[in-house]
Design a protein around this nucleic acid. Sequence first.
DNA 1: CGGAGCCAAAAAGTCAGACTTATATGTCAC
DNA 2: GTGACATATAAGTCTGACTTTTTGGCTCCG
Lengths: 233, 233
Amino acid sequence: MSTPGRGLHGHVLDTLGPAITAGEYPPGSVLRTDELAQHFEVSRSVMREAVRVLESMHLVESRRRVGVTVRPKAEWNVYDPQVIRWRLAGADRPHQLRSLTVLRSAVEPVAAGLTAKNATAEQCAELTECALGMVATSRGHRLEEYLVHDVAFHRVILMASGNEMFARLGDVVAEVLAGRTHHEVMFEDPDPAAVTLHVQVAEAVRAGDAARAEQLTREITMGALEELDILAP
Amino acid sequence: MSTPGRGLHGHVLDTLGPAITAGEYPPGSVLRTDELAQHFEVSRSVMREAVRVLESMHLVESRRRVGVTVRPKAEWNVYDPQVIRWRLAGADRPHQLRSLTVLRSAVEPVAAGLTAKNATAEQCAELTECALGMVATSRGHRLEEYLVHDVAFHRVILMASGNEMFARLGDVVAEVLAGRTHHEVMFEDPDPAAVTLHVQVAEAVRAGDAARAEQLTREITMGALEELDILAP
DNA sequence: CGGAGCCAAAAAGTCAGACTTATATGTCAC
DNA sequence: GTGACATATAAGTCTGACTTTTTGGCTCCG
């Protein structure tokens, strides 16, 4: 999807990373570089590079005379896109999806408020275009097309906010939305109320009404929480 | 501070990472592994490991026959604690501090609301203790002691929310608060109103009043935004 | 019996050198 | 100009030897 097969060490990571994030090695487990290298049939240099990457993600810790120990989940760099992807691909998927949706509910409304204040004319137009695209594809089981517009919409909101931390969550939100469409129960057409809210957000942003954009986006993310049975107040 | 000198490749990262995040190498710059290895007086294996880590942070991209090219800032993994630390230590500090404070303003209120619903008795007690500690040290130029309690307070809020994504922002918030006390203009005692708000948040959490905890925390983070002259609506 | 200190093994860390592979770029014929 | 081909370049890989740190056990002495 993103960066497939960037060398041998990448292949090792594609196997080891998911295994660790899936909890196959409980925290404190000890791996030996040499054994891993043999198991994956790569040289020690390649294996060492892979371990370094896992170490930079705080998934493992490498110490002399002891080996490569798996760190507890609480220490992982859970914002690393690679880690998120691995977890979304594994057994942890439902839990990860919930965590990310809660994060969205915190971030997106504030981002929308900033976007209402900072968006350029082009970004406003793009936003409106996305919203209209959502309307157009919201009926008749055109879920894939709808998803494209939905993802684009939220991406613009996050990018146009002018905050780099928000902007970098675009990929994460895309994964969450895609996950909802593909793996969760969503055979029906999207909720018409949600579609309307997106159109209204686009309007509010165009009008520069930050408070309204924030409130409307809050309603959108609240809907996402309810879909996952995360009780709202 | 966190993991100093974990080998030769760590030393290389401590120099190269800050240099890149500081923008010393403009996007598109090309580095050669061999030259870097010579410059840092390490073997190519060590240099390669360092490059792999930078690559996993999306700071650089390594391609055959081209070299190691620096990626544009927009592609960096800005949530990587190591990257955040490097940027906070360099010229990008003010900008980074603002970005993170805006992120705080989005995340912490929602986290506080969740904490009000999920916190255990112990966590409530800990929170109250932190708030009282802040009150006790809020006068008489005891800024360092105040900071300790302030950091602990926000850490508990984020941890007790029950959301792993929020929990992992504890370190980030700690850096921001420490930065404010140490490097920004803050010779005076903390704002009494802010101190009061913290006490009230602790009360709201204890009472299980999510809406109130959220609103009060929003006021706290609003104050932080105003301190940095980030205009509020 | 218990603690201080020492020893040896284990595993990561480091290095050097040779070789392989992909690929950007230049060259030449058409 | 365009396409095929050759070439140089820099990353990628492998191997083997060596170093360094650290742990766990062992001895020795109190």
